[in-house]
Computed example of a mutant assay.
Amino acid sequence: MLQAFLAILALISAIGLVGSIRVIKEAHEALVERLGRYHRRLKPGLNFIVPFIETIVIEALMSERVLEVPPQQAITKDSVSLKADAVVYWQILDLRRAYYAIDNVEMGIRNLILTMLRSDIGQMNLDETFASRKEINQSLLRQLDEGTGTWGVKITRVEVRDITPAKTVIDSMELERAAEIRKRAAILDAQGSAESMEILAQALKLDPNSREFLKFLVAQRYVEANQKLGESPNSKVVFMDPKALTHAMAELIEGQPYTGESDTNGNSSHR
């Protein structure tokens, strides 16, 4: 009888010994409650607890973690709808507070950044959101670090990854960008033409604003136009009185109306 009792006692002791051994992994910590109240922390390695009296309530990673925030809808200051997503790097510094101060610390961080991200974007115009991404990251980091301080965690870095407006807004931006490119090209072309005319006037030793230079330009354009017309497969041969053409060009430059009629001496007449 005594031997049976001792055997049962030894078996219970062995079970209790095995149940009291806890191995905590590297970079982790665990919290132990005794009879329902916080008692102590367990560090990485071999640890022992009192069976049936002490309980491990949580074991958590203490090194830096990554929390991804999926794309969220937001409205800019100029009423443009867009989506933005982010990545938060965070670390538990005090496991006791992270467990007891908030029900779910990861969900708390996610909800905080969603609120703050929408708030920061709502204070900016669309163009500012693209140009101020670094400022948004810094603002979110500061606000999150302050908001999570009582939870025993540290926000180490926040990165807003993508800011994507609605497709209609993207199409409108592309049209605006194309119009701006065409405008710049037209300005550059006009500047190039002005510089070419200046160089040509210097080569001819003429004043760019003089009537003689204007006559030369009109004649040059006329020759170029006729050359292009002659190269066209649909071109037609048109015979014109050179003297009448000369008078027409001269009167055009001088600002006098040309009637196309000539007197018996070959001089053009005016009505």
Results as ranks from 00 to 15, higher is better:
Met1Asn: 09
Ala4Phe: 09
Ile8Met: 10
Ala10Asp: 02
Leu11Ala: 15
Ala14Leu: 15
Ile15Thr: 10
Gly16Val: 03
Ser20Gly: 15
Val23Met: 15
Lys25Thr: 13
Ala27Lys: 15
His28Val: 00
Ala30Thr: 04
Ala30Leu: 05
Glu33Trp: 09
Leu35Met: 14
Gly36Val: 03
Lys43Leu: 08
Gly45Val: 01
Gly45Met: 01
Gly45Glu: 01
Phe48Glu: 01
Ile49Pro: 02
Glu54Thr: 02
Glu54Ala: 07
Thr55Trp: 07
Thr55Gly: 03
Thr55His: 13
Ile56Thr: 10
Ala60Asp: 14
Leu61Asn: 10
Arg65Ser: 13
Arg65Phe: 06
Val66Cys: 04
Pro70Arg: 09
Pro71Lys: 04
Pro71Thr: 00
Ile75Met: 13
Ile75Leu: 15
Ile75Asp: 06
Ile75Ala: 02
Lys77Thr: 05
Asp78Arg: 01
Ser79Ile: 05
Lys83Phe: 08
Asp85Lys: 05
Val88Leu: 03
Val88Arg: 00
Tyr89Asp: 05
Trp90Thr: 02
Arg96Gly: 03
Tyr100Arg: 07
Ala101Met: 06
Ile102Cys: 02
Ile102Asp: 04
Asn104Val: 06
Val105Ala: 08
Val105Trp: 04
Glu106Lys: 06
Gly108His: 11
Ile109Glu: 01
Asn111Thr: 10
Ile113Arg: 03
Leu114Gly: 07
Met116Trp: 09
Ser119His: 13
Ile121Pro: 05
Gln123Gly: 07
Met124Lys: 15
Asp127Lys: 13
Glu128Met: 06
Phe130Ala: 09
Phe130Lys: 01
Arg133Ile: 11
Arg133Gln: 15
Lys134Met: 12
Glu135Gly: 04
Ile136Thr: 11
Gln138Leu: 10
Gln138Asp: 14
Leu144Gly: 00
Leu144Cys: 00
Leu144Thr: 01
Leu144Lys: 02
Asp145Lys: 11
Glu146Phe: 12
Gly149Gln: 14
Thr150Gln: 15
Thr150Tyr: 07
Glu159Ile: 09
Glu159Cys: 03
Glu159Leu: 10
Val160Cys: 00
Arg161Val: 10
Ser172Gly: 11
Leu175Gly: 08
Arg177Tyr: 02
Glu180Gly: 04
Glu180Asp: 12
Arg184Thr: 07
Glu195Gln: 12
Ile199Leu: 14
Ala201Ile: 04
Ser210Gln: 05
Ser210Cys: 06
Arg211Trp: 06
Leu214Cys: 08
Lys215Trp: 03
Lys215Tyr: 06
Phe216Trp: 12
Gln220Tyr: 07
Glu224Thr: 05
Asn226Asp: 08
Leu229Gln: 09
Gly230Ser: 14
Gly230Gln: 15
Glu231Arg: 09
Asn234Arg: 09
Asn234Glu: 12
Ser235Leu: 03
Val237His: 06
Val237Ser: 10
Met240Pro: 00
Asp241Arg: 05
Leu245Arg: 01
Thr246Trp: 09
Met249Gln: 12
Met249Val: 10
Glu254Phe: 00
Gln256Ala: 07
Ser262Tyr: 02
Ser262Cys: 11
Thr264Cys: 01
Asn265Ile: 00
Gly266Trp: 01
Asn267Gly: 01
Ser268Gln: 07
His270Glu: 06
Arg271Gln: 13
